[in-house]
Design a protein around this nucleic acid. Sequence first.
DNA 1: GTCTATAGGCGGATAGAC
DNA 2: GTCTATCCGCCTATAGAC
Lengths: 232, 232
Amino acid sequence: MSSDITRGARARARTEITAAIKDEARRQLAADGAAKLSLRAVARALGMVSSALYRYFPSRDDLLTALIIDAYDSLGEAAESADAALAGAPPARRWSAVCEAVRRWALAHPHEYALIYGSPVPGYSAPQTTVPPAARVGLLFLRIVGDAHRAGELSAPELPPVLRPEAERMAADLAPELPPETVSALVAAWAQLFGLVSFELFGQFNRVVEEREEFFRHAVARLADGVGLPRG
Amino acid sequence: MSSDITRGARARARTEITAAIKDEARRQLAADGAAKLSLRAVARALGMVSSALYRYFPSRDDLLTALIIDAYDSLGEAAESADAALAGAPPARRWSAVCEAVRRWALAHPHEYALIYGSPVPGYSAPQTTVPPAARVGLLFLRIVGDAHRAGELSAPELPPVLRPEAERMAADLAPELPPETVSALVAAWAQLFGLVSFELFGQFNRVVEEREEFFRHAVARLADGVGLPRG
DNA sequence: GTCTATAGGCGGATAGAC
DNA sequence: GTCTATCCGCCTATAGAC
């Protein structure tokens, strides 16, 4: 992709306006939710007329898709850079750091979090282009656990025989070099991590959990145990 | 509360119409989501005029509140009757049965699940009347764990010192007879349970987990371990 | 690329007659 | 309790001029 300098002013303006549209749309997402995201309201806020937006996004759903991809990428980047800052650290420490980065990102971007991990937007079906960004955090966890495995540090989680074929299928799809029981446990821990974040963010911890950071820290450390990571 | 027979025809009709409004609203919830729930559309579907609905629900938000309370109660009842069917069984079996009842209810009522455990509805703030119904499932888990405790069957989960004051506060609020480390672990397991259900329901398990029932069953059994319940 | 204008809808809420 | 009528607002999307 060419830089802003080598591209013409026209292309540069287009990039800037596209960014401005997404920024304003994110603002409205926070105020009214994804279901009510409206091209007209975005246009009004930008001093444009609604029909002009169709030159940038062919439909409301395409704008929504762009926001979803940006949100997954923003979260993925937050998680990846938290991990990169701990290069060479024990896997359990990287695990915890990434979990905490996920939580921090969610607290800082609650509406974008709701967009990607909350209720599906009625009538909207995410296209395949959202899949790779959506997979970033999961793949990062697989890399961390993979590093532990290569170092011979992984203990094998329990796996009932009835679940073995499924675990083998998941491992073949996601990480053929890892033991199936590890992959299965990791997928469960991944879902449980987001359960903790969602409960905090969506208000289920109100009047129940007060010291949320410490509570979360301990819970994700126990999740790491469940996956078989050695304590850092 | 008097029965339908002792009340007048007027009151009976009112009850029936109120139920019909809520039924139709639930249908629309499934189609368009909570954010777009509209008194007008409900009225249209029922062959009423929109202003007539205001005799039953003073505002759109009151209708939404009624649906939320019904959803929590419906889930609570499903969970409680799953537990009641296992009276006298080992706590770990009751735990699993309740978790599976929660999942089954969620799969059968995905939009009502999204209403209560998904993203908050923008602009809507749940009144205090939703709190008791919302607490039913959590209280049921506390009873199951309390029974195990009284039977001397509970093992104490790990608890880092930094979390002890918070755990003691939670225990004092929720179940003073239980060890604080147990209460803290239970709250975490509770959030993680809903993480598993939400991921399945909201599509994060698509192309990842296929044998969802077995996967879930194993995961919640490990959650029971984490709380300190003896294996059933 | 942006504008005006337009088509063809939708919503919450209230007043006042019956 | 239900009706009509009304206020005042909102939306997606397109056509065609500039």
